[in-house]
Design a protein around this nucleic acid. Structure first.
Lengths: 225, 225
DNA sequence: TCAATAGTGTCTGTCAGACAGTATCAG
DNA sequence: CTGATACTGTCTGACAGACACTATTGA
């Protein structure tokens, strides 16, 4: 499952299935692990085949293995979450099926194949949660980027506006979240903005505050049996 | 992988292997998923078989699938993390191998079978991280429990002392972390302590502060390929 | 009485939220 | 100049760290 930010919306790559089961439905991109291949390698390979892109942020989400998740028989899916800056329109996959960058709200209203809706929701929760206490938001920005662009990532993924002034203070004072390049970029109208690149820190402490109230999930869904 | 707190130390259940490969080494308990069985169910069943205990907190950690992780051939392990209050000494497993509750520092100094050391470390990082922003610490306490007992859980798992006064303020003011039973328990010496049971909240907001400096891992290990 | 543990109150520093005010560009 | 965006400064409230102080038991 790969997310990107484009045109003021968070988007997920979906593939229209060309074969049964679920023919014509949208599904998350995926494939099979090859012999002698690690799980991470397999995820990177599949993504590269489908989007032509490398150098993404990638992490394992979790494994889904309900006995009835594929009508054809027992399967296990090791779901991955990938994040990247605005990506090229995907190349047609080997399945020659159509791939689209679908805004997340739209995707959530679709009927997705298999248990992919559950996977999508968990991935979304994870991405939202990770913005709080890591610096992954910067993975959505093509370097160099402005503070406003980085803020935009948070706003689009969390779905509410952040105070520009407080956001700037937080991001620039946090150790190694972003680094100034020394360059500037002049917008269509307005004062030029300082440009930054990603810093070396992976974790953000203290975390970026999310206004308390907003939807916070007890990911990963624990079992208390 | 199951953790518990006993005798002022965090312990993990390890099983001494009775057969090759890695005969005589310690390994994490595990087993195979049965037909028609979900992953969560399988984890619960294996734990019940090995410890005789039910009603634990359980969550999926992640899946390990390096091609060479088992010398006998390609395998995938879906690792789970379980937490529970001081548990009975484990019953002999079906393998009739010896099972022990090993203090975590001791376990970390062993040579574990397969890639189980990597799994153990990730599980430990996860447990430590989860204490910060969830109420799982209470899963280590048998009800009813005192605030001091709950604090001991944090201290043992994080490995440093917390200020009793500030801890109490935090825990009792957080919404639905713990609930007073109205009963008291008198310690060997000293003032009786109020007793509590687990509250309904799964998440703790704002999080329990961990003194910033201490080992904080970028779990789950992301790939930036 | 003392030792030991439980629990309360208070001061201080850090940081987030709110928002006023200044800076620098295109036109 | 205006309008737009970038950036700085300041006040306030919430909360964590430190720690003094009180409360209640058994011996």
């Amino acid at each position: 499952m790969i997310f990107t930010v484009r045109d003021a919306s968070l988007r997920v790559l979906l593939i229209e299935r060309g074969k049964p089961p679920f023919e014509g439905d949208f599904a998350l991109p995926g494939g099979y692990v090859r012999e002698g291949e690690d799980l991470d390698q397999a995820a990177l390979r599949e993504l590269a085949e489908e989007t032509g892109v490398t150098g993404l942020y990638l992490e394992q989400l979790r494994t889904f293995g309900a006995p009835d998740r594929d009508p054809r028989g027992r399967t296990f899916t090791v779901a991955y979450l990938a994040l990247g800056p605005d990506l090229p329109t995907p190349v047609a996959g080997t399945d020659a099926a159509k791939a689209h960058w679908v805004p997340i709200e739209t995707a959530l209203s679709y009927e997705l194949a298999f248990d992919h809706m559950a996977i999508l929701k968990e991935g979304l929760d994870r991405a939202r949660a990770k913005l709080e206490y890591t610096t992954v938001a910067a993975a959505f920005c093509r370097e160099p980027f402005t503070i406003a662009e980085l803020r935009h990532v948070y706003e689009v993924i969390w779905g509410f506006p952040l105070d520009p002034s407080n956001f700037r203070r937080k991001v620039t004072k946090a150790a190694d979240f972003v680094e100034r390049t020394g360059e500037f970029r002049t917008p269509e109208t307005g004062r030029p903005a300082a440009l930054y690149r990603r810093g070396s820190a992976a974790l953000l402490f203290p975390p970026m505050p999310r206004s308390g109230d907003v939807g916070r999930e007890a990911y990963p869904s624990p079992v208390t049996a």
